[in-house]
Design a protein around this nucleic acid. Sequence first.
DNA 1: GTATGTGAAACCGTTCACAGCA
DNA 2: TGCTGTGAACGGTTTCACATAC
Lengths: 212, 212
Amino acid sequence: MLDSLKIPTIAISRLSVYARHLALLEGNGEEVISSGGLADMCGVNPAQIRKDLAYFGEFGVRGVGYYVKELLFEIRKILGADKEWRLGLVGVGNLGSALLRHAPFSDRGYIFVAAFDKKPGRIGKKVNGIPIEPLEAMNHVIQEKGIEIGVIAVKPDLAQSAADMLVRAGIAGILNFAPVQIQRPSHVCIENVDFSLKLDVLCYRLTSDVGR
Amino acid sequence: MLDSLKIPTIAISRLSVYARHLALLEGNGEEVISSGGLADMCGVNPAQIRKDLAYFGEFGVRGVGYYVKELLFEIRKILGADKEWRLGLVGVGNLGSALLRHAPFSDRGYIFVAAFDKKPGRIGKKVNGIPIEPLEAMNHVIQEKGIEIGVIAVKPDLAQSAADMLVRAGIAGILNFAPVQIQRPSHVCIENVDFSLKLDVLCYRLTSDVGR
DNA sequence: GTATGTGAAACCGTTCACAGCA
DNA sequence: TGCTGTGAACGGTTTCACATAC
């Protein structure tokens, strides 16, 4: 147990995967799982799971395994997934609208409470019950509604200025769907979702067909 | 130059990023760029760029740098992005519809030519000019339209069977938006786009606020 | 006996530093 | 001189193997 002295991001994303599978096990009424059993489900090495967990504590019972409910609870606590997160969307186009309606988000405690767009024609309309506000309202709305995470779904050329506005409004966490590198102050966290890049990788594999 | 003897996936995704920035440079009329200059734009180490390129050949001129147009052309060739790719979508819900309308895909040579859904109410309708077909038509349509890549945008519990159907229809490349591990024969390539996972990582960072 | 927690080894990707070449 | 291409050094993650605990 080393606590937060350099925990690799990839270990965190694995925790998210473990949580997903633990939730399935819990739904099936399973009470106990071994690192080997969970590893098979997640497609990783058992030692990997034990090492990942060891960053944060000792959650298992030797000779037995892990109690599903308990481990799931602990991982959710580690990830910060044991609370509701309030999201604000910038860019209510095709993708943005789909995100506002994306049920799995709210199911998991990620709630969109505001949306912003620059097109006058969109202002005032509602998507999935969420009113679309003008960009100028961002500062005020983000403060008022206690928004903690900004989601960027604008076109690439507007992504940087959208990020700048979010940062100016006090946002410290951004989920960015635009295929651009966003510049930001060091206290702001960004995660990128870049599906053009994934498509490129896929096509590379298909082209150089080495299988896999 | 080692050719395809173990090229890490992460190197491939960096090539995609390099291509993006080279396209910008080309648009600005720049003719030559050094690994250092490109590295600054992409936020990586110059040696990294040279190493990544060295997997595939020698594309630069010592003492000069890389010719923008030429390098872009070569990287596109490596990635297989120098041709059109025909995509088929499974699951025309919120996200699926957004993907069908996603302009940046077609701009880059990724063309949706078919869409499939299980809901009878959706069959026969068109989204962005693409008719929605029943799942049963998948085999036939995929053959007929020469679809090479399947895009999965169904709910998690249906993702595996969607993948199975695609594979049975002869698809070898899948872009999966469902937050599940898909099982598949070893000749089938899958890339996952998992934004719940990215949100979890972001929330971890915000929770354990180590900045960054 | 069985499965965890963990130091040590193996592996892999990144960065350095410099030789090679325009 | 300047920048690429690359072997060698470095750093970090994964896997092994076993002591430890139930």
